[in-house]
Design a protein around this nucleic acid. Structure first.
Lengths: 226, 226
DNA sequence: CGGAATACAAGAGCAGTGCTCTCGTTATGG
DNA sequence: CCATAACGAGAGCACTGCTCTTGTATTCCG
């Protein structure tokens, strides 16, 4: 049993090392990293890597899940702090942005254009929703505290879909709020991606953080956070 | 001269055909399309393609420029219509979204995560800014017509950068407006990307158009469009 | 404790890739 | 008309993901 434990531990360490090296390669090669190059850096034959990951896609999936989890953990930590709802939202947003700036390639992996043949397996949807959950939590907290400004309720078919989402994840919350939270999440991702993917180049080059906050305050206003 | 014209025309046609086939392959292979496969489909030896594009990156660049131009043309057409500022904005936004839905791979090419080793050459910045220009135009029109709701002016270092952008492209426009227009553009891109890259899956599946308009109305409100 | 089963790693090999170089052929321009 | 330039094809290099086979440790169990 101890022996088996050793085996399992060595295997886990090897798996982690492969992922760590792959993460490094991610920085230079992007999503189409070379499994052979990773194997070389680890000190393995390329065929040996297949003992740990059935394919390159599976390795990528592992990296994706790790990235979602790392970002999700950061977001949860940021959202845990006390304070005004809008402050919590801004803290969360800035924390997400900082993580993305620190790990741009991991961000690109999860929020960039999907890898051609790649189809995200079900394992990813859980970790993927952690950030959204935190936003919903902040908005819901503000709502039950009566600190959400009134907005026009949503109408139309998408309102029903929002109601269904609300019923499943945040029972009692008005669909308008769920929609606003989703919109804010999308806006957050879009804004971070825009900065990371170079769309601000030659326009906002010095105080991107300030411009980011400006945008996130707009999102807060859309949600009705005060 | 006529002969030279023939040569040049044949060359142009061949170039277009290669790009057309490459665009088809884009749908299945994404940004890492195979130049050899494209060559096969065109009926050329892979080495012959290099007479037309010096490298795979250069072929990709040509596709990127074409995509920017196609989207830019669509945006310009949409923005040309008359109507209330907010209607013009919504029309433009929906037109951009429709183009993206029709050409998801081209959208991913220009607004997705950047290709690893790829560095966008200077030729792309012109076509890339056409959509943003149209948004700025709508906002500026509304401004000179006095149809922009008052908002808090921006402050801080990024405000100066916005002022510099305004001075260059839209002289006379308050930095706040330029910032809001940029934010709206970023929000538009982010929202479309979120839909295209599958982030709405299992939440909004039926009336994505309605949810999109809901978000774009939020952006309009942020800009102060009425 | 010893043999069987298993996990593991390495290497060769296949089909495919981007790209270069060389070699004939064809069309162009002086 | 002929030198020149453009063009296309093919071979070849180094690389990729992945599979299969072979040999070697290590673990498990009677």
């Amino acid at each position: 049993m101890s022996a088996a434990g050793v085996r399992a531990r060595v295997r886990a360490e090897m798996t982690e090392e492969i992922k760590a090296v792959a993460r490094r390669h991610l920085a230079t090669d992007g999503a189409n990293l070379s499994l052979r190059a990773v194997a070389r850096d680890v000190g393995l034959a390329s065929s040996a890597v297949y003992r740990y990951f059935a394919s390159r896609d599976e390795l990528l999936t592992a990296l994706i899940i790790d990235a979602y989890d790392a970002l999700g953990a950061a977001a949860e930590q940021a959202a845990a702090g006390a304070g005004e709802p809008i402050e919590r939202w801004l803290t969360l947003a800035c924390r997400v942005r900082e993580w993305a700036l620190a790990e741009p390639h991991q961000w690109a992996l999860i929020y960039g254009s999907p890898v051609p043949g790649y189809q995200a397996p079900a394992d990813t949807i859980g970790p993927a929703s952690r950030v959204m959950m935190q936003i919903a939590g902040i908005v819901l907290d503000a709502y039950v505290q009566g600190r959400i400004a009134d907005r026009e309720p949503v109408a139309g078919r998408y309102a029903e879909e929002l109601a269904a989402v609300a019923a499943q994840y945040t029972p009692g919350a008005p669909p308008r709020l769920v929609g606003a939270a989703m919109a804010a999440f999308i806006q957050l991702c879009g804004t971070v991606s825009a900065e990371l993917f170079g769309q601000l180049k030659n326009s906002i080059d010095e105080d991107r953080r300030g411009f980011f906050e400006f945008q996130m305050r707009g999102a807060a206003s859309f949600m009705g956070l005060t």
